[in-house]
Amino acid sequence: MRTGATFRLAGDHGGSAATVTRLLDLQPSQTFEAGERVARRSSAIRRGSLWLLSSELPPNGEVADHLHWLLDRLEPKADALWRLTDQGYVADWFCLAASQATEHAIELDRLLLRRLLALPGDLLLDVMGDD
């Protein structure tokens, strides 16, 4: 089983990832700025910014553990996160669950869901085989 979770803030309205870092006073896992090339060998230019905070837990745990890790860091920043979404940033919680097992449940209990609902962002679950 391979798992992970990332909180993402996209600034398609002209907002920058640097602004998010400054307002949250939190070091992101990765950032992308509008106007940058999408890839080294591509002429495509990124239209919006993207700020990512990914769980640093091992990739063989439970999705819920990754979300708790993110929430522990982001809950103290709740007011700033809501201000950013009020300014036009789009938030989401992107979760990965990849497994070859014939059955593996992703458990998100009510406490975890309550914590997620207190912060902006839709919950996205990417469930796939492990290959």
Rank of each mutant, 00 (worst) to 15 (best):
T21G: 11
H66A: 05
L52W: 04
R83P: 04
L71I: 10
E107N: 10
R2D: 11
I106A: 01
V20I: 13
R47V: 09
L116F: 01
S99Y: 03
G4V: 02
P28L: 01
L52Q: 14
D122F: 06
A5H: 03
H66E: 08
L26M: 08
L111G: 00
L74S: 00
Q100K: 11
T21C: 11
M1F: 02
D79Y: 04
L117M: 10
Q30C: 10
D65K: 04
A98C: 11
W69T: 08
E103W: 10
S42R: 08
S29L: 07
Q100T: 13
A39V: 05
D122E: 15
G88N: 08
G14Q: 07
E107T: 12
E103A: 14
P59R: 14
D12C: 11
G61P: 02
L71W: 07
T21Q: 11
R8F: 06
G129P: 05
D92P: 05
L81D: 02
A10E: 13
Y89E: 05
V90L: 08
E103T: 11
A98H: 12
R22A: 14
D131C: 11
G35T: 09
W51M: 02
R46N: 04
L113K: 04
S29H: 08
E56C: 09
V20R: 01
N60P: 00
L112T: 00
G15M: 04
I106C: 02
L57W: 09
L9N: 00
Y89K: 03
L50S: 13
E33W: 09
E36H: 11
F32L: 15
L67P: 01
S16Q: 08
L116E: 01
I45F: 09
L52D: 11
H68V: 11
